[in-house]
Write a protein that binds this DNA or RNA. Structure first.
Lengths: 195, 195
DNA sequence: CTTAACAAACTGAACGTTCGGTACAAAATA
DNA sequence: TATTTTGTACCGAACGTTCAGTTTGTTAAG
């Protein structure tokens, strides 16, 4: 059970709690009962704040999306573009572990679980990934940072690949239960830009 | 409804049919009814061949695993290691599309959906990924193929990253519904080895 | 200061549905 | 004959959802 912090709104508490459950278990393997048990919010009250399980899921995605890009904006100040990306990724993962939760990417999970079966979810997920790529693309372009081994690769293509490496790396870490796998992948991103 | 081919065993037909459903919808979002409808096999008969839904899921994974590594073994003959990996990945994806099915990786899906909640699944998934990395590692080492931009990166680390890029690329393609995203990622793998 | 009024927040039992799985006789196949 | 397949009916558990009713906090009148 995750205690509700003083001053925290019930709705927010449900969102934060559910986010961690969704990262660990996915949407379809998470029941309303799971959310109730973990948050301490009673069933009736939960349905007072949300109309349906789907609405909770979408709200969690939106909430996490906002937090993610805020965080990305912060961590993009100073340092080289690729260092920023790597650092931000490590920081998010570290925070998850700090709270004893399964490390993973909510958006990546949702992408594979929902993007073909629920267009409400797929819309949000698509938005997250394309904006993520855009931001990295923009920062690579702005910094004029070239790929160390092939300057013909466009910033956009590199940005896509960086996101793919991160998502793939998170997946591998999850399977092996060893964060070193993600770190290895992030190291290669660094090496790609000669860092 | 997927028609059963002549001479095909019912058990095999269930496995192949279910595989495509699982790639598209995942395990928890797939019901026994879905499998029955898609395969044409009646409920009683399905439970004559399998004891439970979990057993079907595991059998599908094992079946796909065997097919995957057979295919990888074939495609590894001739050509450079990284070309083989890229070609095999493209071929599998193309075949899925040919059958009008959602392109995706069964193992990647299962990794994010099940690896934390079901240890039977996680064991198989872990086996697939570690063997996949091993095989690429082995072929890189055997061919003495170095990373074009940093020869200090070990073959194993590179192999891990290649798998991560592929899985991440599949995820991105799935979200964008554009195979170009996966192709872009594969192109970067090629570029990493100066091809 | 007390009290009435009201909306927002919350409760928990109960609902209808769907799920995975069972039972088993009859029919088909080999 | 032994194995495999069909058909239908059924079960209990778990699911997401509803709802009549209770509590709480705020506001304003008496």
């Amino acid at each position: 059970m995750i205690q509700m912090k003083k001053g925290e709104k019930t709705r927010d508490h449900i969102l934060k709690t559910t986010r961690f459950i969704l990262v660990a278990n996915g949407f379809h393997n998470t029941t309303i009962s799971d959310i109730i048990k973990a948050s301490g919010v009673k069933k009736g009250n939960l349905y007072y704040h949300f109309a349906s399980k789907e609405e909770i899921g979408l709200a969690v995605l939106e909430d996490a999306k906002e937090e993610f890009f805020n965080f990305l904006g912060q961590s993009f100040q100073g340092k080289s573009p690729c260092a920023k990306v790597i650092n931000s990724c490590q920081a998010i993962f570290a925070e998850q572990k700090k709270n004893n939760f399964v490390g993973g990417c909510l958006f990546g999970n949702a992408a594979l679980e929902m993007s073909d079966s629920n267009h409400h979810f797929s819309k949000v997920i698509h938005g997250v990934f394309s904006r993520w790529v855009e931001e990295i693309d923009g920062h690579l372009t702005l910094a004029g940072e070239d790929c160390s081994f092939n300057s013909n690769l466009s910033p956009r293509l590199l940005a896509k690949t960086i996101v793919a490496i991160i998502e793939g790396g998170i997946m591998m870490s999850r399977v092996s239960k060893d964060q070193a796998d993600l770190d290895d992948c992030l190291a290669v991103i660094g090496a790609m830009f000669g860092e």
